[in-house]
């Protein structure tokens, strides 16, 4: 079983790490890069597959040379065997479309040079773009089936089938079980939890961890970098030139006023409470999906 996990570096949005300028713009240079948090679930799914069925797991990322660090993190965390970084100035400023084209070219190059891929894993949305488009577009470009919102999975190696449980409409209460032929792309949901109910699986897991410690310490030796020529990609189809999306402007989220006035209302004061409810009413109507603040006016 051979799996590739797609992962991406994102700004570390955690408190203390992230840095904004006076206008509320992210200061990219001052904010460290970390692995996209949702990718951890994809990596765990790949590891579980490898523990149960054996095989090989590779990490793959597209981005600046610094993203090698994210691939190293993946090796430390879930014991990937090797890393592939698609990195080239020509790839800068790619939108989701151009990224998907590049990643699919990465997988095709991998299949030519390394070996046939059975499973391609990706996390659910990145913490910076939040589009959720790159995964499905990559599967489309490869012409592979894709199963999203996966919370549990197993492989039938003989039938070459993936069996997965997935959330329907992101609702935890509604779960469907699907099958898909390999090769196949799997997008894990943040609800994904690996399970290891066999002692032999846990022993394998432990052995992989021990073996990985030395490997991750010498990550450079297990890293392959491919540029657009290696990937056989025309610069017109990638990077800024290959991106059909145009970002016209970015509006910073207005900062909350630092001092707000508070009016104390005693719950026993019915007149004051009525006034307060009157203030709330337009917002209540808007979140109910009604036609806007005015629709609430006739209400009681």
């Amino acid at each position: 079983m051979r799996s590739v996990v797609l992962t991406k570096g994102v700004p570390d949005f955690s408190d203390g790490a992230v840095s904004f300028d006076e206008d509320g713009h992210l200061e990219r240079g001052k904010t460290p890069t970390v692995m996209n948090p949702n990718d951890a679930f994809a990596l765990e799914a790949a590891l579980q597959t490898r523990v149960r069925h054996g095989g090989h797991v590779s990490g793959m990322s597209m981005g600046p040379p610094g993203y090698a660090q994210v691939l190293e993190e993946a090796m430390e965390a879930v014991y990937t065997d090797d890393s592939y970084l698609l990195s080239d100035r020509e790839l800068a400023a790619s939108d989701t479309w151009a990224t998907a084209i590049t990643l699919s070219a990465g997988i095709e190059t991998y299949q030519e040079e390394i070996g046939d891929v059975d499973l391609l894993f990706a996390g659910f949305k990145t913490a910076d773009g939040e589009t959720g488009q790159t995964g499905p577009q990559t599967a489309w470009a490869l012409d592979w089936p894709i199963v999203t919102h996966v919370i549990a999975l197993d492989i039938d190696p003989d039938e070459r089938l993936l069996r997965a449980k997935r959330l329907v409409e992101g609702d935890v209460d509604e779960i469907e079980t699907v099958e898909a032929p390999l090769p196949c792309m799997v997008v894990t949901d943040p609800e994904f939890e690996p399970t290891y109910r066999k002692a032999s699986h846990r022993l394998t897991h432990k052995r992989l961890r021990e073996e990985t410690q030395n490997r991750a310490a010498a990550h450079d030796r297990h890293l392959t970098t491919w540029d657009h020529e290696d990937l056989n990609l025309d610069p017109d189809y990638i990077g800024l030139d290959g991106s059909p999306t145009i970002v016209s402007s970015v509006d910073p989220i207005p900062k909350a006023p630092s001092e707000r006035e508070a009016t104390m209302v005693d719950p026993g004061d019915s007149e004051g409470m009525n006034e307060l409810l009157g203030e709330f009413q337009p917002y209540a109507a808007a979140t109910n999906g009604a036609d806007g603040p005015n629709a609430a006016e006739g209400g009681d």
Binding site: R52, A152, L153, D154, R163, R197, A199
Partner: peptide, 13 residues
């Protein structure tokens, strides 16, 4: 999803 071959019990000496 549980492991395949659920009926196969693990055995150690």
């Amino acid at each position: 999803m549980t492991d395949s071959n659920e009926t196969d019990r693990e055995h150690y000496e």
